[in-house]
């Protein structure tokens, strides 16, 4: 779908303050290379991420949305990521059901010590979104 090779996907990342954001920080301080397509929004917990945020990000022109939080059991707020998991899994299902490329939406668990995993996740996800091309279903036009 990508008409020219210069197209780069816009990816919004919702990272939790305690694990994934710190993990992203570690990736930076460790000088790990990962695609610059991700724009990070720090949230206090992955449980804060309302499914609305993800759909709104798509509507505002995001090509992919990544939500990342602490590993199950490691949540700073004890259960925030478990709640996030339920909501976001059903949203992923709904996107699939409505035919809105569920591959554009990804959740991952990245702990504060997993800078390498963060870099891997972003690299893999960027490639996945790149393969899907520009997102037009929520923006209603050519991206």
């Amino acid at each position: 779908m990508a008409e020219n090779d210069s197209w780069e996907p816009k990816i919004i990342g919702f990272l939790c303050n305690w694990c994934s954001y710190t993990g992203a920080d570690l990736a930076g301080t460790s000088r790990l290379q990962y695609p610059h397509n991700i724009r990070v929004i720090k949230v206090m917990c992955s449980g804060r991420v309302n499914p609305q945020f993800i759909l709104k990000a798509f509507q505002e022109g995001a090509d992919g949305v990544l939500v990342s939080g602490c590993h199950p059991g490691d949540c700073h707020y004890i259960k925030g990521n478990y709640h996030a998991r339920r909501k976001l899994t059903l949203l992923h299902d709904l996107m699939d059901y409505m035919g809105i490329d569920p591959g554009r939406f990804q959740v991952s668990w990245v702990s504060a010590s997993e800078g390498h995993k963060f870099a891997e996740v972003v690299t893999r996800f960027t490639e996945q979104v790149k393969a899907l091309g520009p997102q037009t279903k929520f923006t209603g036009g050519e991206a």
Binding site: P72, G73, K79, Y82, H83, R85, R86, K87, T89, H92, P102, Q106, V107, S108, W109, V121, R124, F125
Partner: peptide, 16 residues
């Protein structure tokens, strides 16, 4: 309530 509760073993096959 569905979203007001959670289980440690909830499925998460799409999560990396």
């Amino acid at each position: 309530p569905t979203f007001g509760s959670c289980d440690v073993d909830d499925p998460e096959e799409f999560i990396w």
